[in-house]
């Protein structure tokens, strides 16, 4: 019976930690997308410096979580988001409104998909 409880504990621990991971990822990504949306609003109002600051903050936090993302998520997706971050930052520097909007929207969508991929729902299981 000891082995049964050890196995059940391991299974429940894995379930608990993977659910906690999904929640943490969702919260982190939501924070990123909120700030990127605020940056977009600042850019729309021609406040490019504010938009740039907000985007920099997100980029720095993204890099701080680099190890965690690489351990938990497919590397291809992480690398694509990294490239999109670069794109967004360049368009911010150039103050190119149209290009920035498109790149920022793409970045937000990629981040949302990344978070959604890890959520426990029927769509993902099937």
């Amino acid at each position: 019976m000891k082995r049964l409880w050890i196995a059940v504990t391991i299974l429940l621990a894995m379930l608990g930690s993977t659910l906690a991971n999904s929640r943490y990822l969702n919260n982190t990504i939501s924070h990123f997308t909120r700030q990127l949306t605020q940056a977009h609003e600042q850019a729309e109002a021609d406040h490019w410096d504010a938009a740039s600051d907000l985007t920099s903050q997100v980029t720095q936090r993204w890099h701080k979580h680099d190890f965690y993302f690489h351990v938990m998520l497919p590397h291809r997706d992480i690398d694509e988001i990294h490239l999109t971050f670069q794109e967004v930052e360049e368009y911010l520097k150039l103050e190119e409104s149209d290009q920035y909007n498109a790149a920022n929207a793409k970045l937000i969508a990629q981040l949302d998909l990344l978070s959604e991929m890890e959520q426990l729902n029927l769509k993902n299981i099937l």
């Binding site: 379930l15 993977t18 659910l19 991929m117 890890e118």
Partner: peptide
């Protein structure tokens, strides 16, 4: 990860 775990159990 939770998807991998759930799919493993189902499969």
């Amino acid at each position: 990860m939770v998807i991998a775990l759930t799919r493993t159990i189902i499969l």
